[in-house]
């Protein structure tokens, strides 16, 4: 999730990561690759029948009353540079009533 001012200055950025996380059960380092992993120790992945709800909250800098919000949902395979876009949703939020 990214928030920018109307002139494009970034004022907020947060990420959430959804995936099973495994170690080799001999140390506490997460492992990537079946040849090193032994068992999941945490699982934040998106499960069937279970919605993932998040709340992102941030303060606007002084004098800023409008923010452009962009929420990107994408899938990463093998490494973070290999992205598959899924959804992008944008919203303009204003503190001034029209």
């Amino acid at each position: 999730m990214t928030a920018k001012t109307a002139d494009g200055k970034e004022i907020g950025k947060e990420e959430r990561h959804y995936h099973p996380q495994a170690t080799n059960c001999r140390d506490t380092k997460e492992k990537y690759g079946a040849q090193w992993k032994v068992a999941n120790i945490r699982d934040t992945s998106i499960q069937p029948h279970q919605a993932k709800k998040e709340t992102f909250e941030f303060d606007l800098p002084e004098g800023v009353r409008t923010a452009d919000i962009t929420v990107d949902l994408f899938y990463e395979a093998v490494n973070p540079d290999n992205k598959y876009p899924i959804h992008t949703i944008t919203r303009r939020v204003s503190l001034d009533k029209e």
């Binding site: 999730m1 928030a3 907020g12 959804y18 995936h19 099973p20 699982d43 992945s45 998106i46 499960q47 069937p48 279970q50 919605a51 993932k52 709800k53 998040e54 709340t55 992102f56 909250e57 941030f58 303060d59 606007l60 800023v64 009353r65 923010a67 919000i69 929420v71 949902l73 899938y75 395979a77 919203r91 939020v93 503190l95």
Partner: peptide
Amino acid sequence: YTPKVVVTTKITSNAGHRIPD
């Protein structure tokens, strides 16, 4: 007063398994 923005997101899945796997 603190000017604030709140964004709520909801991801739902119709897959028959976790994503990713």
